[in-house]
Amino acid sequence: MILQTPILALLLAAALSNAVALWTAWFGLRVLRGWDIASGSRAQLRLERRTGLASTLFGFVMLIQIAALLLFVFNADRMATLFVGAMCAVGTLNVNAYGFPALYLKIAVFFAASLWLILDRVDRQGRDYPLTRLKFSGALLIAPLVLTGAGTELAFFLGLKTDVITSCCSKMFTPANDGIAAEMTGTAPATALWFLGLAGVAVAATGTVSLAAARLQWLFALAGGVFFAAALTAIVSVISLYVYDHPNHHCPFCLLQREYGYVGYALYVPLFAGTALAMGAGLLSLFAGTGSLATVLPGALRRLVWASLICHGLFGAVVLSVIATSRLVLFG
């Protein structure tokens, strides 16, 4: 099954990412050992010259990883026709034991990559590269994640046999099962919507406060994280019902299909971007006191919070329009 164009593309991206991640990690070790911005030694000069390249390459890979997540999900959805009983990406991912781990690792890499890119961007603006050590220890942590992700992905693709009987989303997202998916599905629609609404208010409030006070961004990040969980629960528990006009179809992956106007992408892209930006703002706020960043950081934080708020707003607008245009009446 490896001879499918999107799979070939994903494997190529994974191979490139692995190579760069390994090199960056190795380089990161040297930075951690020998980085001393005050020193004028030859070794330090060499390190300084190469950090630029290392960050560019690693940033490039992080961008690829973000795009690869989209391609991975899109491809899983598309391949569902090849397996017996699959209706959407869930069926494909369930073909063997590596499917969902591969997806979760890709999502983890997505968030790690977004945070790293935000750090990198700010670090470049500081004259003495104040975050370099942090950035490269981050790269050192992300590299194993990238490698494991690639390995799991490869195992998943190699294990894909067509005509295998797999399980459909309707069997996974049902309250009758155990596990977190079932918990999410089983949440009462009203509860899920209330929870989402409250989390939305919390995001808006903490966002406004952090914009006005120019601090407390970590609170905003926290609210963003809670909103993310609330949003995923709400999508599984109630928003999917509105999209499908069906009181029992809870799948969060069928949303990505053409029949439903690709509304899943309109939901997930702003949600994931908004969450990543909020977490980025929280992370950056930890360095508010760092010397050379004092001038750039407030501006960067403002922009991040704004961007995150806009993404959350977009998500909210899509949710509202889905509920408004649905023919399904759940309440009243």
């Binding site: 999107p6 593309a9 010259r49 391609l71």
Partner: peptide, 29 residues
Amino acid sequence: DGIEMTALFFLTVLPYLAATLVPIWRIAS
């Protein structure tokens, strides 16, 4: 098709960018 175009972009543009970027570090350093 979006997915096909993305895959095509990955397959054709990435190898070239990688191939031109990586060697720079020698001169760069």
